[in-house]
Amino acid sequence: MRLQARKLLTLMAGLLASPALWAEWAVNMPEGVTDLSRSIYDLHMTIFWICVVIGIVVFGVMFWSVIFHRKSRGAKASEFHESTLVEILWTSIPFAILVVMAIPATKTLIEVYDTKEADIDIKVTGYQWKWQYEYLGEDVSFFSNLTTPREEINNQRPKNKDYLLEVDEPLVVPIGKKIRFLVTGADVIHSWWVPELAVKKDAIPGFINESWAKINEPGIYRGQCAELCGKDHGFMPIVVDARPMDEYQKWLDEKRAEAAKVRELTQKDWTMDELMEKGEQVYTKLCAACHQPNGMGLPPMFPALKDAPIAVERSQIGKHIDVLLYGVKGTAMQAFKEQLNEVDMAAVITYERNAWGNNTGEVVTPKDILEYKKNGAYTGKYVEAK
């Protein structure tokens, strides 16, 4: 027993002495990198110290009374009733304290909700389990997905310092500009939260909530969905990349060029190998978490695609496209019409029809996807592999 106690004490001492443990020790909110976050931090500290003073006074009087006015010292309790002075004191003092606290709180709240005269408007849409960012008026829109390797999630290799906080496409913004975030949801309630920007807004389907930030320092700022939005709630990170204005403008031009290139690729004649290579990338990023890397799924919630009629029968190609575009109501299968472009859709469908032994030899091209969006039907015109 003594040996076990000694081992336990040694372990606790080692943990307390660990620099890594103390590096993570934080009991206060971050000061942040925006004017708004610092205003909130200052308000927090003001209220905190007011509460500290109140606590010292209240507990000081209480302990002083216990020590110096106890029965063993012969103290006798005073008896008084309906004292006008006492009534006035214990009403006016708390009221005065609340007024003192309300003045800075009101000032900060007005600042928090002042979203007018923004330099940049970004629409943030929450999906299970990813974020869509649309730069209004700039013709730039993209999705941001988790990129933490599945091996780390499944404890098959050590976790890195940014575990579950890595994405393929960060939200890039300029420093020194007022950015208004228009936050909404596409399926369930999410919450867009970046502590160092002092932004936390619920993303509610059918509603648009506003928030704003003006970042003073370039850098990478990370956050997460702060609402329980489903089984992969913890796999929905946010990464904000704040850059100087010239670097931001360069990035914006590159994103516009990428969008133009995708539009060109839609008209390209794709080969089976090209579609399979791209389709595997899309499937691994967006589909493998539910349908599994081997296509076996997790029935009954996530059906298998391997040997499934929808993925092997030629007569169901149209249904395959429809399910990817519009999802399946009442199930976990969401609509990808706004999440994937025509190239990615065609590639992932082609991959699903030819991977894991399905081997249909059928190719679905971006032209097929465009035709289905336009007419709601699949003609099979481009089905032959090249």
Rank of each mutant, 00 (worst) to 15 (best):
M1R: 10
L3P: 02
Q4C: 12
A5N: 08
K7V: 10
L11F: 10
M12P: 03
G14M: 03
G14K: 01
L15F: 13
L16Y: 10
W25K: 08
E31Q: 12
T34I: 04
T34Y: 00
L36K: 01
R38P: 00
S39T: 08
D42V: 11
L43W: 03
I47W: 00
V52Y: 07
V57C: 12
G60V: 04
M62E: 10
A75G: 11
I93N: 10
Y113Q: 13
T115L: 04
K116T: 15
I120C: 02
D121W: 02
V124Q: 01
W131R: 02
E134H: 08
V140N: 03
F143H: 12
N145E: 09
P149G: 05
P149R: 03
E151Q: 12
Q156P: 08
R157M: 13
D168E: 07
E169F: 10
V173Q: 04
G176W: 01
K178T: 07
F181H: 04
A186F: 00
H190Y: 09
S191M: 06
V199F: 01
V199G: 02
K201Y: 04
A203D: 05
A203N: 06
G206I: 09
F207P: 07
K214A: 13
Q224V: 10
L228D: 15
D232L: 14
P237W: 03
I238A: 06
Y248L: 05
K250L: 10
E254G: 13
R256M: 07
K261C: 13
K268H: 13
L286E: 15
M296T: 14
P299Q: 07
P299R: 07
A304S: 11
D307A: 15
S315L: 11
I317E: 02
I317T: 04
L325D: 11
A332Q: 08
A332Y: 08
F336K: 00
L340G: 05
V343T: 01
G357K: 04
I369M: 00
K373E: 12
K374I: 06
K374W: 03
G376D: 07
Y378T: 05
G380V: 06
Y382R: 09
E384S: 15
